[in-house]
C-alpha cells in the first residue's frame, strides 16, 4: 500500500520534498511506518528518532494504528525557545 506522509521544516529539507510516498502494508504501527520511511528515504535517519508522528492532526503513540484513511505527518521538534 502506498502511503503519503507530510513533511515539514528540517524533515522536508532533508528529504527534498514536502510529501513522501512510502510502501507499507496496512494496518500498520508507527514502528512499521518508521522502517518503511527509512527504506525509502535514508537521509531522514539522523533526525527521525527526534521527531514525533501526527496521525489525523494529533500526536500519535506506539498504540496508534495507521489505516488507509489516516493522514500522517512527521513532526520535528518544535522551535522551543529558552525561558
Amino acid at each position: 500500500m502506498t502511503i503519503q506522509i507530510k513533511l515539514f521544516a528540517v524533515a522536508m529539507q532533508k528529504a527534498g520534498t514536502s510529501e513522501l510516498e512510502v510502501d507499507c502494508p496496512l494496518p500498520a504501527t508507527l514502528a512499521d511506518l518508521e522502517q518503511a520511511i527509512l527504506t525509502t528515504c535514508p537521509t531522514l535517519a539522523d533526525i527521525l528518532p527526534h521527531c514525533r508522528f501526527a496521525v489525523d492532526d494529533q500526536f500519535a503513540t506506539a498504540q496508534t494504528v495507521i489505516t488507509t484513511d489516516s493522514t500522517i505527518a512527521i513532526i520535528p521538534p518544535v522551535s522551543g525557545g529558552a525561558l
Binding site: 521544516a9 528540517v10 533526525i47 527526534h50 520535528p76 521538534p77 522551535s79 522551543g80
Partner: peptide
C-alpha cells in the same frame, strides 16, 4: 531550522 535536540 531550529529544532531542539537536532543539530542544524
Amino acid at each position: 531550522w531550529v529544532h531542539p535536540g537536532i543539530e542544524g
